[in-house]
Amino acid sequence: MSRQASQRVAFALISLAAALVIVAILFIAGTIAVQGMGALSWEFLTGVPGDGMKAGGIMPAIIGTLLLTLGTAVTAVPLGVGAAIYLSEYSQDSGFTRAIRIAIINLAGIPSVVYGLFGLGLFVLFMRFGTSILAGSLTLGIMTLPVIISTAEEALRAVPQSFRVVSTSLGATRWQTIRQVVLPQALPGILTGVILGLERAAGETAPILFTVAAFFLPRLPSSIFDQTMALPYHLFVISTQVPGMPIRIQYGTALVLLCFVLSMNVAATLVRSRFRRRRQW
């Protein structure tokens, strides 16, 4: 086979593989969009499940997922951004920092169901929070930490070193430099990372299985020590645990969850692209 011919074959195969991936993604998203659209209605979004979840809406699950996402943010953002500031602005390359980095890599790799076990062992049982929004948020927060740390650190490191030097030469302390110059410049990048981390947390099921999720709870939680329904777990329940579930409601729930998560993705993309256009370096 001539060199040109082998190039043509190789490129064709590679393009085919990429096309396959595109088709698969479009198929999945398309199926959910088309099938789920029919279920969407104001009642579905704002109503409470009825008739053994075979009718009514999914409002408690939507609110629950919102609350958990918020709880995750409250847990993970201060710690994650703080750690990123430490790694990028303060730490020297020492054994200690390397230990932190290895810990972060390790956290990032732990399977989500193991986070669930950990949350059960530490927060639910040992600290006696019970299955609660608090236990679930802490579990999801720790799971999200590595994502936020790595993206925030990357955003901080992207700020040119020269800004730090100049600010220091003008009589700024290290923290003043961070506060006034580095953080404002890195903010959009940090925000993107935070949103992407929360996106992942919002869609997770395994970590909330034993830490917060309620099978069926038609009222809204009244404190952080309450259980709550959540979209991913609800989808799991109605597609595997409830016989005779109308397929329309299943697809509708999947669509709402997908939209919830992907809207965060879009938000992250918007923040990122606006930032690229605006920055001056």
Binding site: P160, S162, F163, V165, T168, L170, G171
Partner: peptide, 16 residues
């Protein structure tokens, strides 16, 4: 000290 001893660099670096 840095307020008493100012510095101008080779490349102009206006803060953003």
């Amino acid at each position: 000290l840095r307020r008493r001893v100012g510095m101008v660099f080779a490349r102009p670096v206006p803060l953003p």
